[in-house]
């Protein structure tokens, strides 16, 4: 490690200011519209935990592109399949991330996308089956550098 010069010291200072400000911003954003999204998607029914496996890094160094993989345990036939999966981030300015729509032609209810996360927060997935049953899973991702503006 090199000794820190003046410029780097300033950068570090700025980082600390950001760090102290970030949690406040995050607190304000926990009440983003996540509840409204869930309400709209589930129609007020409470989803059951399980069936979904949500794969996200525990720590995301860059919030601008966080890989997310998800799979839902279910047959994919005309009789029973995964219809939709909604992904939410409860600490982003807008809770919505993506809604995946599967069909029996998909073969497997599996998908990967890359998402933006503004700060350390929970990522929630809710799956809707063809029979209307709902399942949910959530995971906390620590974000070092936020992915929304800034």
């Amino acid at each position: 490690m090199k000794a820190i010069n003046r410029r780097q010291a300033f950068a570090l200072g700025g980082g600390f200011v950001m760090l102290t400000l970030m949690p406040m911003a995050a607190d304000a954003q926990v009440t983003n519209d996540a509840a409204k999204w869930i309400e709209k998607f589930t129609g007020g029914k409470a989803p059951v935990k399980g069936k979904i496996s949500l794969d996200l890094p525990e720590i995301a160094e860059n919030g601008n592109t966080v890989p997310l993989s998800l799979s839902v345990e279910s047959p994919m036939t005309e009789q029973a399949y995964v219809k939709e999966v909604m992904i939410l981030a409860d600490g982003n300015p807008n809770a919505g991330v993506a809604t995946l729509m599967f069909t029996p032609l998909s073969g497997k209810a599996e998908a990967s996308i890359r998402i933006r996360l503004a700060a350390t927060q929970n990522v929630v997935a809710i799956a809707k089956m063809s029979d209307g049953s709902l399942f949910t899973e959530q995971k906390t991702v620590k974000v070092t550098i936020g992915g929304c503006g800034g």
Binding site: N92, T103, P104, S106
Partner: peptide, 23 residues
């Protein structure tokens, strides 16, 4: 026939990458 669709929000990274399956 529709196989897969995805509604995307601003929380999707630039140059959207989407991976899915097909039977």
């Amino acid at each position: 026939k529709p196989l897969f669709a995805c509604a995307l929000e601003p929380a999707i990274s630039a140059n959207p990458y989407i991976q899915f399956n097909a039977k």
